[in-house]
């Protein structure tokens, strides 16, 4: 199969709210897909259906040949899918009862059955890469938001997933901490791993994305290279969204 991630006609409703109305997307290995859109457009939900944290109602997800059909699947298939993906959360969601090192090791030890000593060594290496060498034995509550998020990224990276899902990774951060996390994500992108990123950071999207997807109302409105979508969007809805976002930035700086 030439695609790393195949999202096929995904529908998802929460009660009467039809959040995803048939979203399809094929993503090649090494692509960095940035999903943009106003709040309520379904972009976070789409991301969460990819690893079945929210189970889709219709459609199917395939990650590196692990296929899960929304209407007919087993728990084992979902587990298999999750083992091929990793996720970085808006609120970090680090395990509060574990140190940073234990957080990163946890998946290796309990899911992948690595020896503890090996897992520890690998985790330390990853933590060094995201700049947390000094913080191995700190608990999440003792770290800043930026440090916690970098630990969250390390926890995702260590599993060597086929695709990493970033769910608004900088939205909960203090403005001065956004940069360090974005830099870490950029470094990850340069390793050639497949990434799907939901974010509001337009500048980041421009720099890192190989493809930008604009969603609104539960459908993909427009997608293409960042140079096209972010500079010369064809769809009026995309234009409105971008002018609102950049307008907001201008107002702030004025």
């Amino acid at each position: 199969m030439e695609y790393m991630v195949q999202i096929d006609h995904i529908h998802k409703s929460f009660g009467d709210n039809h959040v995803l109305q048939g979203v399809s997307m094929n993503i090649k290995k090494g692509e960095v897909v940035v999903i943009l859109g106003p709040s309520g457009s379904g972009k976070t939900t789409l991301l969460r259906t990819i690893n079945f944290l929210d189970a889709a109602d219709e459609g199917s997800i395939t990650v590196n040949e692990a296929r899960v059909d929304a209407q007919k699947h087993s728990k084992a298939q979902v587990l298999e899918l999750r083992k091929k993906t990793a996720m970085v959360f808006q609120n970090y969601n680090l395990f509060a009862n574990m140190t940073i090192l234990q957080n990163v090791m946890e998946g290796l030890v309990t899911v992948r059955k690595f020896k503890k000593s090996d897992a520890e060594k690998m985790s330390m290496e990853i933590l060094d890469k995201v700049g947390l060498s000094e913080k191995y034995h700190c608990y999440p509550s003792q770290l800043s938001g930026g440090q916690q998020q970098r630990a969250g990224i390390a926890r995702a990276l260590i599993l060597d997933p086929d695709v990493i899902l970033f769910d608004e990774p900088t939205s909960a951060l203090d403005p001065e901490l956004v940069g360090e996390v974005l830099n870490t994500i950029k470094a990850v992108a340069q390793t050639g791993i497949t990434m799907i990123v939901v974010t509001h950071e337009i500048a980041f999207a421009k720099e890192v994305a190989s493809r930008v997807v604009f969603m609104e109302g539960g459908v993909v409105v427009e997608e293409g290279k960042p140079g096209e979508i972010l500079v010369n969007p064809k769809e009026p809805r995309t234009q409105q969204f971008l002018s609102r976002i950049t307008g907001g930035i201008n107002q702030k700086s004025a």
Partner: peptide
């Protein structure tokens, strides 16, 4: 207990019981 951590546990491939 904050249930975001449960989602994080699922995301690294853990079963519910684990």
């Amino acid at each position: 207990v904050d249930k975001g951590q449960l989602e994080a546990a699922y995301s690294v491939g853990m079963k519910g019981t684990t």
